[in-house]
Amino acid sequence: MLNMVIPMALALVTAAVTMSFWRLLKGPSVPDRILALDTLYVNTIALLVLLGIHLASALFFEAALLIALMGFIGTVALCKYLLRGDIIE
């Protein structure tokens, strides 16, 4: 059962990554691209967790945690740049 479900889930999440990437390329505005990047982080976390279950390895957890942390900081820094034209005040 699990062996059948995981490839399906991987396909769905990969499609999600593709759609986020399309929005990242298309824009049309800068916040749209940042939003697409943010979604891409979340999709990547989902992909890593799925791969972790698929390969039965707990090693992917740290990578997922780091992407969550860095993705959040990246999004906030980019928004801050748009709002103030400066990141560190």
Binding site: V5, A9, L10, V13, A16, M19, T39, A46
Partner: peptide, 12 residues
């Protein structure tokens, strides 16, 4: 897993 994947897909 399926629910999670479907919601991720719908979000994107």
């Amino acid at each position: 897993i399926l629910t999670g994947a479907i919601f991720t897909f719908v979000g994107s």
